[in-house]
Simulated assay, not measured.
Amino acid sequence: MLIKIEKARTPQDWNVWMNAWCVKFRSYAEALAFVSRLEGRINAPHQLPVSEDRLVLER
């Protein structure tokens, strides 16, 4: 995922782009905090869910 922060058209606003999706923030600090939290969640270790009830079929 491409994540970038850019100045918005209004003087006080900032945009955070995540690929083609954009979120507007009122300050650079808010935008930066959002990106930091988002990147932390993306980079966090994730386990794939495993169902105990799933049948395993073998050939």
Rank of each mutant, 00 (worst) to 15 (best):
Q12S: 15
T10E: 11
A33C: 05
D53H: 15
K24C: 08
R59Y: 12
D53E: 13
V16K: 04
I5P: 02
W14G: 01
K4Q: 09
V56S: 10
G40P: 00
C22A: 05
V16P: 04
W17D: 01
V23Y: 13
E30T: 01
N43V: 02
T10L: 09
S36W: 05
I3L: 07
S36N: 15
F34T: 00
A33M: 06
V23H: 14
C22T: 12
Y28T: 02
M18C: 14
R41M: 12
L38T: 08
H46T: 10
V50E: 12
F25K: 07
Q47P: 00
L57Q: 12
V16Y: 03
R26Y: 09
A20Q: 14
W21C: 06
C22H: 04
L32P: 01
L2M: 09
K7W: 03
R41G: 11
L48S: 09
R59D: 15
S27G: 04
F34N: 04
E6C: 09
A44W: 03
S36V: 08
L57T: 12
A44M: 09
Q12W: 09
D13K: 11
K24G: 03
V56W: 05
L2D: 09
S36G: 08
S51T: 04
A44C: 06
Q47R: 12
K4G: 07
V23Q: 15
A33Y: 02
I42F: 10
E30V: 00
T10S: 12
E6L: 10
Q47G: 03
Q47I: 06
S36D: 12
E58A: 08
R41K: 10
E30F: 02
W21H: 13
E58L: 11
M18F: 10
E52L: 13
M18P: 01
L55W: 07
V50F: 10
F25I: 07
L48A: 12
I5G: 03
W21N: 13
A31S: 05
P49L: 07
E52K: 13
W14E: 02
Q47L: 13
V35C: 07
R26M: 09
R59Q: 13
E52D: 11
Y28S: 05
T10P: 00
R37S: 10
L57F: 15
D53G: 05
E39D: 04
R26I: 06
F34K: 02
M18Q: 13
L38S: 02
E6D: 09
Y28L: 15
F34Q: 01
A29R: 08
V35N: 01
Q12A: 14
W14S: 01
L57C: 10
A33F: 03
S36R: 15
G40A: 07
R59H: 13
V50C: 08
E6W: 02
P49A: 07
R41W: 11
I42D: 02
E39H: 04
S51K: 08
V56P: 00
R37E: 14
P49N: 05
V23C: 10
K4I: 06
N19P: 03
D13P: 04
V16R: 03
N19V: 06
V56M: 08
V35H: 00
S36K: 15
E39W: 02
P11K: 07
R54Y: 08
E30S: 11
Y28K: 14
H46R: 15
Q12R: 14
V16A: 04
R59T: 13
A33P: 03
E6I: 09
W21T: 11
R9L: 12
P49G: 01
T10Y: 03
P45G: 02
W17K: 13
F34M: 04
